[in-house]
Nucleic acid binder design. Structure first.
Lengths: 228, 228
DNA sequence: CGGTTCTTTGAGGACCATCAATACGCGTGG
DNA sequence: CCACGCGTATTGATGGTCCTCAAAGAACCG
C-alpha cells in the first residue's frame, strides 16, 4: 500500500519499472519536507543519508573552497540528487540549497541500496540515471575547458531557447549571478558577455532574452551534439 | 571455461564478485588488442560498441571542439573506460589515444548490458564504478572552477607525491604538455606556474619533481578531501 | 517606502593565451 | 660517436580575457 504522497514520483523513470513491493520497501521511512527559499539543505562533507527528489520548486547544487563558491547545476521538479553518494555510501561532494520554496522527497539511502540489490528493474534505472548524470558532467567540463565564457553564454542561450519550445524570446530560469557562476564567470563579466553577444543577434532586458538573429547566434556559438 | 587471456581482469573489482557463468558470458566475443603509442583508438561521436579495459600501457581521454583540444584524464593499467556510453548505448563523449604501447581488452557492450541484467553482483560493481567515475569528474570540475591554475598545479604535485608512496622526489607520469591540458592551461603557463611554486617549496628538473618544503607547499595548496 | 540584494558600468590590474625564438632531449641515420 | 631532425620545454614580449574594486542604478521585499 503505497502512501499517496509518493504517488507523484512513481511514474518517474527511476521508479516506473520497479515492482510495487520494491517501491513500498523503498519508500518505507521516506518522507516529504518543505523548505523555504534560499535554505541550505545539504552541506558538502556530510554523509549522504537520503536520496533527494525535487517534487516541486528548485534546487541549486554548489560547492565551496576557501571562501570561493561555484554553482554546479540547478535542478527542477522530478530531478534526483545525491544519487552517487547514496550508492557508494560516501559523503556529499556538493552542497544543495533551495532557490524557491520547495518540496523535497527524501528516501533513506539504505533503502535505495537494499532495493537496488533485489530489484533488477530499479538497478537498471539507477545505472541509467547515474550514467546520465556522469555524461552531463563530462559535457559540462568540456564546455568549461574548450570554450571561452562568451561562447559558453551563447550556447547557453541557444540551449534555453530550445528547452523553452524554440521561443525566440524567453525568461532566464535563474538569477544572472547564479548563471554567471554556473558558466564559470563573475556577474560583472556575464553582463559584459551579454553586451558582446549583441552583434551576434542577442538582446537582453532584465530577465528577458530575445534572439533577434538565430542564424548569426548559431554561427557564433557553434553548438555541438557532444557538448550541448 | 574462461580463456586465459582474460584471467588478468577477473580479479578487478568490476569482475571479481560475478559468477563464473556471467564472466564467461561477458567475455564471449571479447578480445585483446595491442596498440602502438600515440594511436587514437576511439573518436568522440562514435558508437560505444565495446567496454575497454587497459591491461597494460597508458591511455589518454581527450576531447576536441573547433580545433581546440583538452585532456580529460589519463588511465593506467586495470582502468576501464567508455562505461557510461556502453551502459546507455550512446556515442562516446570523449576520444581515447594510447600514450604508450598498450594492451587493451575490449568487451562487446551488448554483453555488458546483458550480464548486468542477470548478475546482481556485476550490477553492483558497475554502479560502483560509474558512481566512482562520476564523483571523480565532479571533483575535477570543482578543482577547475574553484582554483587558479597555480593552485591546481600545487595540489596535483601533492597528490602525485601521495600516490608515489609519499616520495619527496618523483617523476611526472605524463608529459608536461598533457599535464598542462589536464590542468586547463597552456604548456607555457605550466612552465611559469612551476616557477611560481618555487618559493612554495617545489623544485623541478625535467620530469623530476622535488618537494623541498612540504609544509609550505601544503599551506599554499590547501588540499581538500572533497576535491582531491 | 526604506533597506537589501542584484545588476550594470567603469577603471585598473592579475591572470592567462598567443606568438616567436631559443634551448633541450631523444631517437635515427650517417 | 656525432650530426641531424623532430618534438618538447622554456623564456620573453605582447595582447586579450577575466577578476577585483568601486559606485551607481534597478529590482525586490518586508
Amino acid at each position: 500500500m503505497t502512501l499517496e504522497r509518493f504517488e507523484s514520483i512513481r511514474e518517474l523513470p527511476l521508479f516506473a519499472e520497479m515492482t510495487g513491493v520494491s517501491f513500498d520497501a523503498l519508500t518505507r521511512g521516506a518522507f516529504v519536507q518543505n523548505f523555504p527559499p534560499n535554505m541550505v539543505m545539504i552541506s558538502e562533507g556530510e554523509a549522504a543519508d537520503f536520496l533527494h527528489i525535487v517534487q516541486s520548486g528548485c534546487v541549486e547544487l554548489f560547492s565551496t573552497w576557501t571562501n570561493r563558491e561555484t554553482s554546479v547545476t540547478t535542478l527542477y521538479e522530478n530531478s534526483t540528487f545525491i544519487l552517487a553518494a547514496t550508492m557508494k555510501d560516501r559523503v556529499n561532494l556538493m552542497s544543495a540549497r533551495t532557490l524557491q520554496k520547495s518540496r523535497i522527497i527524501m528516501i533513506p539511502s539504505e533503502n535505495v541500496r537494499n532495493v537496488f540489490a533485489t530489484d533488477p528493474a530499479f538497478a537498471l534505472a539507477i545505472v541509467d540515471e547515474l550514467a546520465r548524470c556522469y555524461r552531463a558532467t563530462i559535457r559540462n567540463m568540456k564546455n568549461l575547458k574548450l570554450r571561452t565564457s562568451i561562447e559558453r553564454l551563447a550556447n547557453y542561450i541557444l540551449k534555453q531557447h530550445h528547452r523553452q519550445g524554440e521561443a525566440l524570446s524567453y525568461q532566464l530560469p535563474v538569477e544572472k549571478r547564479r548563471l554567471a557562476s554556473y558558466l564559470g564567470m563573475t556577474p560583472e563579466n556575464l553582463s559584459r558577455a551579454f553586451n558582446n553577444l549583441k552583434p551576434h543577434g542577442v538582446a537582453v532586458d532584465g530577465q528577458t532574452i530575445t534572439i533577434s538573429d538565430k542564424t548569426k547566434l548559431t554561427a557564433f556559438a557553434k553548438p555541438d551534439m557532444l557538448i550541448d
